[in-house]
Nucleic acid binder design. Structure first.
Lengths: 165, 165
DNA sequence: GGAAAATGGTTTTACATCCAACTATCCTGC
DNA sequence: GCAGGATAGTTGGATGTAAAACCATTTTCC
């Protein structure tokens, strides 16, 4: 496919119709909440990753760890509902946390289907470290949102999650 | 905390130490923007899915289609930057759009590394249909956010994406 | 008491996504 | 011009995710 036409067209000098990132036309996307929610979440996710680079745990697992820490004995299904991920997603996630000795999974005698999830001491330490990372990440977000808007912004986010959940 | 430790098991009648979703303790998560951003985005994603169930295209591809439609001739790299996904993610995504005859990918003679992406007529039709779905999804979001807050909310989201990007 | 429905978890399948390494093409400096 | 660096896109490997089918157990209801 060498396209041997040797550039007979050779428009040559035109500086290219290439688009700079800044001049992209987003059309209706530009005014849509859903789109910007997605973009903001992607950016926030990446920023969290920067703060927690050393510690090797994703935001999702961090949320899981926090909820387990605060609600010892919680079941996997309840956990999955609370953090908004599918229970089938949680199976390998919890598995890896158990393998890393951060979470303990014990059967109950009352209901032999469920597990009780609790943190190990190592899990509690990890949670403390991660909470520090998240705290710094939150400081970044707070600085951007600003103290005036913060409460209202949070309220709106919560409302979206509740009413669409 | 609960944990009456009376459980010699066989408590039988106790309505279960099971947690209802409503009474989960989220600890510091409860006040964090990053967490609620994530939850809101998950909910929004699912709601979009409900509206676009018939049409078989994810939000990410929808965004790609829109940007291509608005910026005919855009390159894959520029597209990936604009919608915030990795260029390697885009390779199979564009591939499937091309296979479904929604997008055309043409080589340029000036720079034989890049592709020019454009919509096919079928792609434009698909974009119109999807835009209708997204419009309904947006209506849901608008109803939740409310007209008073909308502009400020959007401004804040945009700021987060920009400053953390 | 037992069949039927519900519930907790796992497995399987199918993608989406990122990162790092790679190929092919271009651009730059000498 | 041509070697070395940049850039466009692809590939491979690892992980995250959801949905559906599935097993084991418990609960409901007759």
């Amino acid at each position: 496919m060498g396209r041997p036409s040797t550039m007979s067209k050779a428009v040559a000098r035109s500086p290219a119709p290439r688009k700079a990132a800044a001049e992209i036309d987003f059309g209706p996307l530009a005014g849509w909440i859903g789109f910007h929610l997605r973009m903001a979440q992607i950016a926030s996710f990446q920023n969290f990753g920067r703060h927690a680079r050393d510690i090797d745990l994703s935001p999702g697992r961090f949320a899981a760890l926090t909820v387990i820490g605060r609600n010892p004995g919680i079941s996997q299904t309840a956990l999955s509902k609370s953090i908004g991920s599918d229970k089938s997603t949680l199976t390998p996630a919890i598995g890896s946390l158990v393998k890393r000795n951060l979470v303990r999974r014990t059967r109950t005698e009352q209901d032999r289907r469920t597990y009780r999830l609790t943190l190990t001491p190592a899990g509690e330490k990890m949670l403390r470290d991660l909470t520090d990372c998240a705290r710094r990440h939150e400081d970044d977000l707070d600085a951007i949102v600003g103290p005036r808007e913060r409460a209202q912004f949070l309220r709106t986010l919560r409302k979206i999650a509740e009413e669409l959940g």
